[in-house]
Write a protein that binds this DNA or RNA. Structure first.
Lengths: 239, 239
DNA sequence: AAGTGGTCTAGACCACATC
DNA sequence: ATGTGGTCTAGACCACTTG
């Protein structure tokens, strides 16, 4: 099976960039060169290069080549579909403690019914967790999963990575999400679980997560203390 | 010249979705059908469909088809490379007044030199503008452009759309940007130009904008009153 | 079995940048 | 004139979904 050749090429090229084998400002080999190097067709090479471009590794310039973008200045994009576990991989050397405060099956109220496109007969997993980073509680995650898509869930799983469980154990294919960032007044729940140090407002990231079959299966509110919040995005000019 | 056939197809298909000709949950015609409809090859159709997918219009499902995503729930993504003018197109029926408070050429200080990758010999256009929306001053935009890429600029241009000027008059090709969102303490400048109503913090969107040739030419800080800030993003699972 | 999207190929012509 | 990326074609085989 000769599948996903373009993904293999994508990974190889990102490795070359990350390792510094090709430095920012320099160009990758031409598409024709790459077809020879990887023994493939040009369209397959272009598929891999387009991925590099979309993810901010290169800028393609007509007549010149694929210029490597300075990733230093880019820092680590926290965009895309990220779970907290993925974000925390970037928080190297920082100690993170996850605490589960609330876990169980509930009947959705009006708000949740609307957020999750649910019906009154649906059941919903509710999980409330706080994240202590370097000794300070700064993030409160409130997750809601539709039970019809997530039949089983335990408190133990919630103490680790829910996404790992959903993808590897339940084989759910998470496909896309809508993210909304706003600032709200702190709630009593925020004050109870977080070290707010007098902040009266909190950054709220609302996430609507969809499966491959376009069904909405999760709504999440990730509530961050103002001074610890940071969102980074790489964006290309849209058509 | 038969160029950009796939863009034409993309626009035609988005029109069909926006007009409600194809409704959320329904599928587009199959790729083979579309090749016939548009008298083209399948790869060209797929190029158009991939654009639709990236921009959150459809979800492609193997064996089934291209399902239209509910754009209602998606609202208007403010992601991508947007200037204020583009954002304000979505603020229909709302009155917007732009005021230029500061305009001129400056020598970059240490902070700007670092943000713009500039040298001490570079000159920088500095533009400070406030946005009054529905009678309230809620956004303060601080723009910095490297003069070597933007030779001319006037206060009058800044009262309208700088981006329109850059793209249509100067023919600058804006290509990609890095966006960073954080919350900071309000400055005296914020208090001077905005109606802060006692808010002590402010949402700051920092934008590093790059040209097609990968040179950084603009740094912008867009400072939004907490309660009026909203950021929406559509994200696909990254590889 | 038939239809769908996912991947891949080997060619072609074009517009752009460089020498 | 040469090399680069951008677009387009006509075909092929595969994996998946549905009848």
């Amino acid at each position: 099976m000769r599948q996903n050749k373009y993904l293999t090429i994508y990974k190889e090229l990102t490795d070359r960039i990350k390792s510094g084998e090709v430095k920012p400002g320099e160009v990758l080999p031409s598409e024709n060169d790459l077809t020879i190097q990887f023994d493939t067709s040009r369209e397959t090479i272009r598929k891999a290069l387009n991925l590099l471009s979309q993810n901010g590794f290169i800028q393609k310039i007509k007549g010149k080549g694929s210029v490597v973008i300075d990733v230093q200045k880019m820092s680590f994009p926290i965009s895309g579909l990220v779970s907290f576990k993925e974000v925390s991989k970037n928080l190297q050397m920082e100690s993170v403690i996850t605490r589960v405060h609330d876990f169980g099956l509930i009947k959705p109220d009006d708000f949740l019914t609307q957020q999750l496109d649910a019906t009154s007969s649906d059941e919903v997993w509710k999980v409330t967790r706080s994240r202590e980073i370097n000794g300070v509680n700064i993030i409160l995650d409130k997750d809601y999963f539709l039970k019809k898509y997530v039949p089983t869930l335990t408190k133990e799983i919630c103490e680790g990575s829910i996404y790992e469980f959903l993808e590897n154990q339940l084989n759910l294919n998470i496909s896309f999400a809508k993210k909304e960032i706003v600032v709200e007044d702190c709630t009593d729940e925020d004050r109870k679980h977080l070290d707010l140090e007098g902040f009266s407002h909190i950054v709220v990231v609302k996430n609507y997560v969809y499966l491959e079959n376009t069904s909405l299966f999760q709504y999440t509110e990730s509530r961050h203390r103002l001074d610890k919040f940071r969102f980074i995005d790489f964006a290309r000019r849209s058509v």
